[in-house]
Amino acid sequence: MSWNLILTILSSAFSASIPVLLAGMGGLFTHHANVFNISLEGMLLVSAFTAVAGTMSTGSWVMGLVYGMLGSVFVSLLFAFFVLKIQMGEFITGIAINTLATGGTTYFMRQMFNVKGTLTSPDIVSIPKWDIPILRDIPVLSDILNGQPWLFYFAFLVVIPLVYIVLYKTRFGLRLRATGFEAKAADAVGIKSHSYRLIAILICGVLCGLGGSYLSIGYMRMFSENMSSGRGWIAIAIILLTKGQPLKIMMLALVFGFCEGLGMSLQGYEIPVQFTYMLPYVATIIALFLDSRKKKSVGNKKA
């Protein structure tokens, strides 16, 4: 395996896993609020579409990003309305929203742009890529991390630390977790668990909006039918596996992205494609297994 190829795999592991990562960061808020939110997939898809529609109609990526977030926030409001206001099952609502997102984006794509399959256009303005002066001069890191859309750096340097701080170091995060842990007890001490859940769903919408926009106007410069391709589901799986811990979500999203790329390149070594397709899933489970073993042994020592 050439050096060049390894750098490419590493680079795409970072950049292509951003949507999963951001959806995971959003989903962990609902996870901690004890809202079983499976509509991450739909949120990603809708925001990927509205982001493209936004840049095409306004000619600016800023508006694309705004539209992307609005699209996803709209979906999250819909979810909140059904789940919190009229108390419908979270699972049913999630499924309905995901189906609606697939059908709806396809429908509007055909109606508004008269295309089927893929929407590409020179009018789609992508999020500008940053060439970072110091990073540029570091040999290996510059190949892997430099020249990405700024949302990429924003996700790693702002979103993840912020999510971590909000969740574990603020009163809001503590109360949110308390709400998820035992809503009635939280209510009894005066925490309005209802509004905490609503806020969690909205935060989820905003972060999924960033993830979806990154998908269609950051990493790619197009929209295609069902573009999220299960990334929302992978995010849900990762959240559940890690019990909603932000740093572990980041780690697993990267492992998944790296193995996806690695799987492709292993095809060059006569390994059957069925195994290379499996690799990211197997690797994610193994990573988790190793992690849980480590914790167990620490626990044993304590005992």
């Binding site: 292509a16 893929t118 998908l215 990493y219 790619m220 295609s224 573009m227 391709s229 996806e260 492709m264």
Partner: peptide, 8 residues
Amino acid sequence: MDPVLGKQ
């Protein structure tokens, strides 16, 4: 159906 994979 996944252009992201195609690009990778």
